[in-house]
């Protein structure tokens, strides 16, 4: 048990990160990104907290942080339809990040880029299914690019954070 966190500490940290993720979601909710003119455009700030959980704690904890954030967001300022898009994006994004991280071939920025891109791809696919029109796919190229760019920026930020606080040392 040397150099590892106690279970209590892990749960506490996961809770803190969930709160952080929710707070970041709220900040995004306040920012008027509809004005950008790209439907579905988001900075993906909440992914910072999810990735922090992924690197500091593990895959399961990251999923929990992401899930708690989703439900809280729904309860406070979401619509059910919007929630479905978010779930689709979050699930695909998280799965992709976990896989990419396990390969050990990508650094934090790469994993973050994948997260951003897959989040937007998941949302678009979900919208296509729910709305029953394939026409929405025309938004995909733009959303892939914005997802990659915001993902890269977030990844860079996270890279610097992790350099200072270190990755997880347990397991």
């Amino acid at each position: 048990m040397k150099n590892t966190m106690t279970k209590t500490k892990k749960i506490a940290l996961a809770g803190l990160l969930a709160a952080l993720a929710f707070g970041l979601s709220y900040i995004e909710f306040l920012l008027p990104f509809d004005a950008v003119g790209i439907p579905g455009f988001k900075l993906g700030l909440a992914n910072l907290a999810v990735m922090l959980a992924l690197y500091r704690l593990g895959s399961g904890e990251a999923a929990a942080v992401s899930g708690v954030r989703l439900v809280l967001s729904l309860l406070l300022f979401g619509s059910v339809t919007g929630f479905l898009y978010s779930v689709a994006g979050a699930v695909l994004s998280l799965a992709g990040m976990i896989v990419l991280k396990r390969t050990n071939r990508f650094g934090v920025p790469g994993v973050s880029v994948a997260g951003g891109v897959l989040h937007n791809a998941g949302q678009t696919l979900c919208a296509m299914v729910i709305l029953g029109t394939a026409g929405i796919v025309s938004y995909l190229p733009l959303l892939l690019i914005t997802g990659a760019v915001t993902g890269a920026v977030n990844g860079g930020v996270l890279f610097m954070i992790l350099k200072r606080i270190g990755e997880k040392k347990h397991e």
Binding site: T81, L84, L131, G132, T133
Partner: peptide
């Protein structure tokens, strides 16, 4: 539960 209640999604 939430998925099941998603029948409120708007249709064209």
């Amino acid at each position: 539960v939430l998925f099941c209640s998603c029948a409120t999604a708007k249709k064209r």
